[in-house]
Nucleic acid binder design. Structure first.
Length: 590
RNA sequence: GCCCCGGUAGCUCAGCUGGAUAGAGCGUCCCCCUCCUAAGGGGAAGGUCGCAGGUUCGACUCCUGCUCGGGGCACCA
């Protein structure tokens, strides 16, 4: 019977230190016992690429060679000789230029099946985060239009990073910052208002720079439906004395001023109606995409709660601001930015940046130790000034981190906002389904440009990689159904007792792959690289399918049958846990 | 001009923060359903890792220069 060092956790459940960690300990103790230069060696254990080089390898001998003045292979021999005896390892060899390869005994892998089943949904979770409070802000698209495919990528990335970090022991909060107080919101409101007037038969001219797109008309329609003539003003009053189209920006601003003037208190009601409608659409899309937020933080809250004033006071008190040309500036250049930035404009209005500074200060004051913002790559120039502002306010610029997500192109061509004609995230989800969409987004590294193959995502065929993984899960369910139909009952205890029967090479390979799961989750969290998960899950599915094709589960040999079913259930558990992290469903049948 | 990301198989991309013959999917070619879903499995072909230097026992990985593609350099957000 296979045994190894265990310790009991508070909850009473048995926790087995991962194989990798145990190997690391063996090496450390060998280095310690040898002493001298060996004691300086940094124990580094890696998974091998190819199992013919064992399961794990260390390069300590190579790194020590210089200091020791001896050939690495010779050092490796000495380390191997000093390794404490362990039934964990079946064989150790010195290979290549001086690697030490470890072959793990089959029993150690077999025991994993039971560990995974015992851990259930907990398998893969870890605690590198140590309870660190992290605030992940993502999407934060302006509520002035529908989400497009670029936002979808940020949504998939941010939500999965949040899941993976939460699974790694971070205390994660997810937020969406609603930019509802600036000029863009006014432009949006006026765009809706003018459409509304047109719908009511009032002949006004829509400025060239107003938001185009059918969705504006849609919101205008519901505005008309719910408020009838409440926001009507006659055409002559609306357009009297407004500048022409030769300066589109000035024209737009004039319309905004006119709308405020004519509508009075109703302006805010009209604007709120439009913003609420659009935000509702955004929430609905994200909900369908499986993306949830702990808080939707409105820019307006920063004004009403005096958070902006608070942040500005802090900055002034610390001597980081000055006035010039009638505006209030922040000295960001001294803190690594290209130039100083305006907080309060000449016209007395705060900039988007000022609000953002206040928001980030608020995040820290709420106790978050790490702030991760997920931004589109086009915002990269904005990083330095936000970091500088946080540094100026709190001296904790390092607490701020930005994950840039590169651009998305569709197989049909690039999508941009405000072009009046773009593919929305909603359309994409409807066409390809949330599972395929999420999977496509997540499989690429965030700092890689993504070419989204819509046709492939839509195809319900074996060409679509997301089905490959889901199919592996469905197969497990199918086997259990067949088992039942044939009158067999799975005896997990019997399977555990006969777990040593899992001696086929496909079973070995699958077990080794399953053992990597906690490492992958941790790595994805620490390197902010959730794309590692879909790639890993593909490996799991691949190993499972190979095994499935080579051997039968439903057989008369009960001990072997039960043992195999244990491994199959362990595989299903890893697939489930992994798919849950990436937000893709694990179907029972396909 | 300056800053950020990328250039790896025909196509789309991985490559675990410097390791041992560079991987996967799709596509191409061969083989496997009297057997738990063939949305599967096995095998083959396919590479000067953009180019040129450098760092060292070792470089796809780090540094420098160049080149090509994308993005950014507002009192807009």
């Amino acid at each position: 019977m296979w045994t190894r060092q265990t310790h009991i956790k508070k909850g009473g459940q048995v926790e087995l230190p991962p194989v990798k960690e145990q190997i690391s300990k063996l090496i450390s103790s060998a280095l310690e016992s040898l002493g001298g230069v060996f004691a300086e060696g940094r124990t580094q254990v890696e998974r091998t690429r190819d199992t013919k080089n064992g399961h794990f390898a260390t390069n300590v001998a190579l790194t020590l060679a210089k200091a020791a003045g001896q050939p690495p292979r010779k050092l490796a021999e000495q380390i191997v000789a000093a390794l404490p005896a362990s039934e964990l390892v079946s064989r150790v060899e010195v290979a290549g230029p001086g690697f030490i390869n470890f072959f793990v005994a089959p029993g150690a892998w077999q025991a994993l099946a039971g560990e995974i089943l015992a851990a259930g949904e907990q398998y893969g979770r870890g605690n590198v985060g140590g309870g660190t409070k992290v605030l992940i802000e993502f999407v934060s698209a302006n509520p002035t239009g529908p989400l497009h495919v670029g936002h979808g990528r940020g949504a998939a990335y941010g939500s999965t990073l949040a899941s993976v970090m939460a699974a790694s022991g971070f205390e994660v909060a997810r937020e969406y910052y609603i930019n509802d107080a600036g000029r863009q919101a006014d432009i949006f409101g006026v765009s809706v208002w003018l459409r509304y007037l047109l719908l009511r038969g009032i002949e006004v001219r829509v400025p060239a720079k107003a938001y185009p797109g059918d969705y504006i008309s849609g919101i205008a329609e519901s505005l008309a439906l719910e408020h009838d003539a409440a926001f009507e003003r006659d055409a002559a009053t609306v357009t009297r004395g407004l500048p022409g189209a030769d300066d589109p920006e000035a024209e737009l601003d004039a319309y905004i001023a006119r709308a405020r003037e004519l509508l009075g208190d109703d302006y805010r009601r009209m604007l709120d109606f439009a913003l609420t409608a659009q935000l509702g659409e955004i929430r609905g899309t994200l909900d369908d995409f499986g993306v949830r937020f702990d808080r939707w933080y409105s820019e307006r809250e920063l004004v009403t709660s005096n958070a902006i004033r608070h942040a500005l006071d802090e900055l002034k008190a610390r001597g980081h601001t000055y006035e010039r040309d009638g505006a209030l500036w922040l000295r960001t250049e001294a803190l690594g930015d290209e130039k100083d930035r305006v907080l309060i404009r000449e016209n007395g209005q705060h900039t988007y940046f000022a609000a953002d500074v206040a928001y980030h200060l608020d995040k820290l004051e709420r106790g978050h130790a790490l702030l991760i913002d997920v931004w589109g790559a086009d915002h990269h120039g904005y990083i330095a000034r936000v970091k500088a502002s946080i540094q100026a306010l709190t001296g904790r610029g390092d607490a701020f981190e930005v994950a840039l997500v590169q651009f998305v192109t569709l197989s049909a061509g690039r999508m941009g906002k405000r072009s009046g004609n773009f593919v929305t995230l909603r359309e994409l989800i409807q066409d390809a389904g949330p599972d395929a969409t999420r999977f496509f987004y997540l499989t690429r590294s965030n700092d890689q440009h993504l070419e989204f193959d819509v046709e492939l995502a839509k195809s319900r065929s074996n060409e679509n990689p997301v089905f490959y993984i889901q199919y592996a899960h469905a197969r497990c369910a199918s086997v259990l159904r067949q088992l039942d139909e044939k009158g067999f009952v799975h005896d997990a205890a019997n399977g555990a007792a006969n777990i040593a029967r899992l001696s086929e090479e496909q079973e070995q390979a699958l077990l080794v792959t399953l053992s990597r799961f906690p490492e992958v989750v941790e790595s994805a969290a620490l390197s902010r690289a959730p794309h590692q998960l879909p790639h890993y899950l593909r490996d799991v599915a691949n190993d499972f399918h190979s095994w499935y094709n080579a051997h039968q589960f439903i057989i008369d040999d009960a001990p072997l049958r039960d043992a195999r079913l244990n491994l199959m259930l362990a595989t299903r558990q890893v697939l489930r846990n992994g798919l849950a992290l990436v937000g893709v469903s694990a179907p029972e049948a396909m």
